[in-house]
Design a protein around this nucleic acid. Structure first.
Lengths: 242, 242
DNA sequence: ATTTTTGATTTGTGATCACACTTGCATTGA
DNA sequence: TCAATGCAAGTGTGATCACAAATCAAAAAT
């Protein structure tokens, strides 16, 4: 966790300017941890301590423990019987389980979105497609953070168009759970060779533009299955080595 | 909320007997609220206060606020901009949304379970079927609590057999969210006429016993759609009256 | 050298306090 | 009579403290 050069907001004028519901410290901590989790900044099996995170985020233990509790109920973190909390370890079974759930739910979301997205919304995700090309243009440094963020924006821009207030939080929960795994896979990708995420995203956009729900679903499945399959092979290779 | 004649456990001997991880107060409060929510003991739009629940559950505010935070992230409760929390109100859109998600996810879970349940597990849910008959036998008093609990046991006995540690928490979250609505529907049912839940459950068992995943899915859809459709009509009738 | 024990440190949990914000009601003014 | 103001009670949030359990390290015993 980076040292988080965030300072507490005590400015009374700023507080008054805030329109109606001030952001609570707990929300900030929660978002911060969420982003770290989805981005894979925590390693699987890593143990987190309340006081440690509180120091890193420059607050007291109070907001941190509530945020941790919330992340535990989302299965983004795991409560050990010792009452310490860690990010869940990777297992083959869990990966397959996560992938199946993601195919099921994100597939449904994109199928719904494919029939509902407006031209404006489609233009937006096409724009994100362009950013992939930009990044490839100056790929001398592989910016994994950027990749993860861009990928996330692309997918959720679509999911938000599905119009389901129930499905979206579930998808967020799934990303939270698979975040640490995915990061490992993306690193492995970068080592292994080409980043062709953009190719998969292009076929998704194509299907959506044609309002072909089934094609969109299949393109999505291909996209999200890839890192899982990659990681699966990696884990099996390691298992066989032992 | 009932006054909860639960007393704090300070007995040192009992604590030592507890095998490894003592149950924390926070866990107890969380379970208690969960059960109340799924059972529909809280009405939609009802506002909950931390201190009020703390008094009712005979603890300090500490465990309650953490439990509320967790329930809010599961969308079982809703955080208002005033920072007060209430159980989400019923709307037509939300009901349709919830039903679609439940059909999708619980349908998948039961399809998986249908191919994996052992004879022993099937016998267990057949036993639950018998309990419906018992209850019908002495139906002079309509025991809504019992109905809700029995229905829950039946479904989750099946879902637990699907073998997915990812899907089950999502289903629990969905039940948490639809709990308050369902209760309203069940009451309406009891007023309206016959309780034929057992009939639907029987066809589910039949499909599972035949290991027919598709039939099981369809039977499930029929089962869970019913209260939603009922409530839907009720709401629309009220809307038209205005 | 290995194991056991003991003591110090760390950690999660629950309670309590202080503060800011909201809400509701009563008093005051026109 | 009604609206506006102001005061009081109630509420969520964050910080801090006390305590028990777990962890780790060093020292003692085998």
């Amino acid at each position: 966790m980076q040292k988080a050069a965030v300072e507490k907001i005590n400015d009374p004028i700023a507080s008054q300017l805030a329109p109606v519901g001030r952001e609570t410290v707990q929300d900030r901590v929660y978002s911060e941890l969420r982003r770290a989790l989805i981005g894979g900044l925590f390693e699987p099996s890593q143990v987190l301590t309340i006081r440690g995170l509180a120091d890193a985020l420059v607050t007291s233990t109070m907001p941190v423990r509530e945020a941790l509790g919330r992340l535990i109920t989302e299965k983004a973190l795991e409560a050990l019987p010792n009452r310490s909390v860690r990010v869940p370890p990777i297992t083959l079974e869990r990966m397959d389980d996560l992938l199946r759930a993601r195919i099921l739910i994100e597939g449904e979301a994109i199928a719904l979105a494919a029939t509902r997205m407006t031209g404006r919304q489609i233009t937006a995700i096409e724009g994100l497609l362009g950013e992939w090309d930009e990044m490839r243009a100056l790929k001398h440094k592989k910016d994994v953070d950027r990749e993860v963020t861009l990928n996330q924006s692309f997918h959720f821009e679509i999911y938000r168009a599905c119009g389901s207030a129930v499905l979206i939080p579930m998808i967020e929960s799934l990303w939270l759970q698979s975040g640490p795994c995915i990061r490992v896979a993306i690193y492995a990708f970068s080592d292994a060779g080409e980043i062709d995420t953009a190719h998969y995203h292009r076929s998704i956009v194509k299907a959506i533009a044609a309002q072909d729900a089934q094609a969109a679903r299949e393109a999505l499945v291909a996209d999200i299955s890839r890192p899982f399959a990659f990681l699966r092979n990696k884990l099996q290779a390691e298992a066989n080595k032992d």
